[in-house]
Amino acid sequence: MSELKEQYYDTIVSPVITEKSTIASEHNQVVFKVAIDATKPQIAEAVEKLFSVKVKAVNTLVNKGKNKKFRGRPYTRSNVKKAVVTLEEGNSIDITTGL
C-alpha cells in the first residue's frame, strides 16, 4: 500500500496557491503542480485516493520554461505541468493544510 501512496505523491507535486487558484476554489476547482509525464487518469486517481474526494474532470496545461539571465549567465527555467481538478458537488479539499 505504501508503494501506491508514494506513486500518488510522485504524481502530485504540490498545490498551487495563487489569487487565480483561490478564485477557482469557489467553483469547486483545485490547482496542483503535477509530474510532467502524468496523465489525466493518473492525476484523477491520485487526488481521489489522497484526499478521499470524487473528481469530476481534470484539465492540464504545461507552462514552458522561460529563458532568463542571472549575473549575465543565461539559463532556462524548467517546464511545469499544472492540473485544474474539478470536484463533484459536495466535495472539497483544504489545500492550506498541506499534503
Results as ranks from 00 to 15, higher is better:
Lys68Thr: 06
Lys69Trp: 11
Val30Gly: 03
Glu88Cys: 12
Thr22Pro: 07
Pro15Val: 12
Asn59Ser: 14
Arg77Met: 11
Lys33His: 09
Tyr8Trp: 15
Ile95Met: 15
Ile12Thr: 01
Lys68Ile: 08
Ser25Trp: 04
Glu88Ser: 13
Lys54Phe: 03
Pro41Gln: 01
Asp94Ile: 02
Ser14Pro: 02
Ala46Gln: 01
Ser25Ala: 14
Ala83Asn: 04
Gln7Glu: 14
Val80Asn: 05
Pro41Lys: 01
Lys81Ala: 02
Ser92Pro: 09
Tyr9Gln: 09
Met1Asp: 12
Lys20Asn: 10
Asn91Met: 07
Thr86Val: 08
Asn28Arg: 14
Glu6Gly: 00
Asp94Pro: 03
Ile12Lys: 00
Lys69Gly: 12
Ser25Met: 14
Val31Thr: 11
Ala44Thr: 01
Thr11Tyr: 05
Glu3Ser: 10
Asn59Ile: 08
Thr22Asn: 14
Val62Cys: 04
Phe32Val: 01
Tyr9Cys: 07
His27Ile: 09
Val55Phe: 04
Ala24Tyr: 14
Asn59Pro: 05
Val16Lys: 01
Lys56Glu: 15
Lys81Arg: 13
Val53Arg: 02
Tyr8Ala: 07
Asn59Glu: 15
Thr76Ile: 08
Thr39Gly: 15
Lys69Ile: 13
Val16Phe: 06
Leu87Asp: 04
Lys68Ser: 06
Lys64Leu: 12
Gln7Cys: 10
Asp37His: 11
Phe32Gly: 02
Arg71Ser: 05
Val47Asn: 02
Arg71Cys: 03
His27Gly: 10
Pro74Ile: 06
Glu3His: 09
Val84Gln: 05
Gly90Lys: 00
Glu6Cys: 06
Ile43Trp: 04
Asn28Glu: 13
Gln42Cys: 07
Ile12Gly: 02
Gly90Thr: 03
Ile23Leu: 14
Glu48His: 00
Gly65Ser: 03
Asp10Trp: 07
Glu26Arg: 14
Ser25Arg: 11
Leu87Asn: 04
Val31Asp: 00
Gly98Pro: 01
Thr96Leu: 08
Val55Thr: 05
Thr18Ala: 10
Val30Trp: 06
Ala57Pro: 00
Gly90Phe: 00
Ile23His: 07
Phe32Ala: 04
Lys66Asn: 15
Tyr8Thr: 06
Asn67Val: 15
Val84Gly: 10
Asp37Glu: 12
Ser78Gln: 14
Gly98Met: 02
Leu4Lys: 11
Glu48Tyr: 05
Lys5Asp: 09
Lys56Asp: 15
Tyr75Glu: 06
Ala83Asp: 07
Val16Ile: 15
Ala83Thr: 07
Thr11Gly: 01
Lys20Pro: 04
Ala35Cys: 07
Gln42Lys: 12
Ala38Asp: 09
Lys64His: 12
Leu4Gly: 08
Pro74Met: 12
Val55Cys: 08
